[in-house]
Design a protein around this nucleic acid. Structure first.
Lengths: 198, 198
DNA sequence: CAGTATACTGTACAGATGTTCAGTTGTCAA
DNA sequence: TTGACAACTGAACATCTGTACAGTATACTG
């Protein structure tokens, strides 16, 4: 695969990212060279071309400091999914309904957002229409809020994982709903919630 | 006051903001001049100096494109307040405990964030420790969620505003708490909620 | 009127900057 | 060894870029 980075390319990319985020201004080729121990500006240009062709960087014409990161390089910009897939890749491109920006301190690469349907979790303060931030995971501990898929419902549900005796089940937090005892698979942990009052 | 902008200065600042947000790279003095019909680069430098001295812009040394916006120019970066003041200015600098970034589409300039204390609003899906996004306002409509201050408690409470007969009162959404019927003043509307599960 | 402050223009210049191009080095396969 | 290829170096160059400086025009003040 051509989308792998050499250690040096990674260092270059990291430095560019650092400059943009911390200083607000992208670096020049010579600044990159100085920091990453690359002697010639043309050599840096070479790496930039590599990074650009691999999709890690955008390079605007030949203007000074014309380096930007592609939008999806920002880990705090999370995709809002209409459903979670049951397949191996949780995030299917066709299910992305939009994007939501969250605080960078509470986001990790890979997180995604799901819109809550139904009122089965009102007891946990999760209302219909809320957005929940989910961190992909295949296991969870007792009493954690999880997103799971069952064989019936491959769309994904938000429930509390509970151990009852020897077996695990998914419980709602609304007396009108019973637990899910059929086979299920945890796909992620609920790590945050965003609600908008119109 | 020296913090007012002339129309031209505003156009310059708007263009710089546009470049940074849309293109990712700040403009050069000549790019600004071209767009804002300022003939001489030195004249643009003059305006930049003005904008910088008024605090609307940061200007890094004499490096190319060394223009950045001060952090508090970002309307999606909201201050987290420990309490809301009862005075004329709601946001007192000394009460700012930190900052929280929210989605730009749901933020407006002036919004702030308050950490919820107590469980009086659990019925509305607002739990202790949640962050609520507040938009300053002095009036609100029936049934809206508001932040208000009373004479006893100048710290600020989150309640639902209700009209009961001829008078208004603040109601909790937890059967263990009664309504607040004493004099109060609305300071803002609840427009969003952010919760982090650790 | 003279004096002053603001908001410019025009020009010049040193240094920064992206790019090109002709080579060089090291690795790996045949 | 030879050839191919990726990863560089070094030097040169045309432009881009921020800044300095010497003025100009206008409005306002006393």
């Amino acid at each position: 695969m051509s989308s792998e980075l050499t250690p040096l390319q990674k260092r270059v990319l990291d430095f560019i990212t650092e400059c943009i985020q911390d200083r607000g201004v992208p670096p020049t080729v010579r600044e990159i060279g100085k920091r990453c121990k690359i002697g010639a500006p043309s050599s840096v240009a070479y790496h930039i071309k590599q990074l650009e062709s691999k999709g890690f960087l955008k390079h605007e014409g030949s203007i000074s400091r014309g380096l930007t990161l592609p939008e999806d390089a920002d880990p705090s910009r999370l995709p809002v999914l209409g459903r979670v897939g049951a397949g191996n890749g949780i995030i299917a491109q066709e299910d992305i309904e939009g994007h939501l920006r969250v605080d960078p301190d509470s986001a990790r690469r890979g997180d995604f957002v799901l819109r809550v349907r139904g009122d089965s979790m009102t007891g946990a303060g999760i209302l219909e229409g809320d957005f929940i931030q989910v961190r992909p995971a295949e296991t969870a501990r007792d009493k954690q809020l999880v997103v799971a898929v069952t064989e019936d419902d491959a769309e994904g549900v938000v429930k509390r994982l509970r151990k009852r005796g020897a077996s695990w089940q998914l419980e709602s937090e609304n007396p009108n709903y019973g637990p899910i005892t059929e086979r299920f698979r945890v796909v992620g942990l609920v790590v945050g919630l965003i609600r908008n009052y119109t």
